[in-house]
Design a binder for these strands. Sequence first.
RNA 1: GGGCCGCUAGCUCAGUUGGUUAGAGCACCGGGCUUUUAACCCGGGUGUCCGGGGUUCGAAUCCCUGGCGGCCCA
Length: 485
Amino acid sequence: MAEEDLFEARRRKLDGISNAWPARFVRTHLAAQIHDEFANLQAGEDSGKQASVAGRLVASRVQGKVGFGDLQDSSGKIQLFVTSSGIEAFDNLDSGDIVGASGEVIRTKRGELSVRTDEPLLLAKALRAPPDKWHGVSDTEVRYRQRYLDLIANPEARRIARARIDTLASIRRFLDGRGFQEVETPTLHPIFGGGYAQPFVTHYNAIDRDMFLRVATELYLKRLIVGGMDRVYEVGRVFRNEGVDWKHSPEATMLETYEAYADYLDVMDFVQAMVRDAATDAIGTTKVSFRDADFDLADDWRRVTMHELVSEVTGETVTAETDLDTLKALAGRHHLKVEPWWGPGMIVGEIYDKVAEGTLKAPTIVYDYPKEISPLAKDHRDDPRLVERFEAVVCGMELCNAFSELNDPIEQRKRFEGQQELREHGDMEANPIDEAFLEALEYGMPPTGGLGVGLDRLVMVLTGANTIREVILFPALRSETTDSG
RNA sequence: GGGCCGCUAGCUCAGUUGGUUAGAGCACCGGGCUUUUAACCCGGGUGUCCGGGGUUCGAAUCCCUGGCGGCCCA
């Protein structure tokens, strides 16, 4: 039957129904509550207790004068057992319909816990058929464009959505419990900064100027630290106008936390505890399988400096003192393109990025970054060529980025000027000078430990999702078009 | 941006070397069935083979081009 005929056949079934779109239905139980409450009911036994349930009819089996239906609600599934006088109404339902039913909770002869009803009630018609009851929907494009179908048909989609919700709730609990305050800062920025990325540009009509969608929340959260809000965090969408791959989405959700009087070593402990709690709360265990690795998030994460790691992976000793020519030669041996204006730090960063990072499997804290590639981190207490910065990496994917925050406004201005030079060389991801931010620092910012966590990525690790699109309910896709060539 | 792969019924898929009227299961429609659970039995057959152009006696199949998606690389 053609699609229009299927649609029409379903629509016709509304004709004889007086109130096909009721506004309300009183439920007494979710499916899972019935399974809990009546777990001990024996096969063939009636409970004597009434229940009202509602949800989507995902399967039905009519056998003569009785019928069986599987009702799916937010908690799970419960069988409807439709008897005598209800069979005509039941026969008039289609799979996918939203249905309510009231009756006695029983367990059938075959052992299936059921609500026995003689009046199944249509609560909302599904004019389109739901996904195939057995195969579900597996076309990735459909799963992303019509995530509701994925959620209806695929338990895995529901599991991931739920884990994300629970991860976020856990993190908020963790932070709130430590005296952090959740704040909201602007999404539209006059200057982009705080992250190394190309911004989206939009136009603000009321003040007739171009604005940038934020690439990070960092520079506003630090203003709040200046303002005396000692522990703040924001969970927010950030926008990066770049390519999409398994670990990058142009819209991503970032958690940033700032804690006055803490340093990056404090933040190392902090982020591990937060991730460990999130795992326990979201998936009930700290043992995870992600991509080709299995590990326990409760184990202490390995800590290695960037220079140690680069040395280890390349087999050549690289330190902050290694000279430019040696580094260029090393980069060349790894077939890396090095721009002529790059200093030693940028080359080390490039070797790390392209050669070393991908070798890391279990969570690893890579710390003490070159200053050149870290314009917002504080000078290292022992080595002025380095900064106090770390990233945690899992299976070659950066999970978080943290610093002892640079709070010296004079040094910060120099760093911005360094970024400006990169922009003049054509690096449009380098951040422009943000005078308003510098002015805030000039009023005095306490020493602060800051952290940025890619929440989508954290959910990937916890759920084992192998692409970021699986943990974003509505990932960005090109428009569907019917244009012909 | 580059390379490779894919797009066939509402869904999941098959479709040989280019050759009759493009198939299966599910879903759907009609009939049967008072304990089914991928229910079952009998009957029915749904289509812009992603769009456009070309080659050919003949195109889902080959070529060109565009779209969308996936994987890998930058």
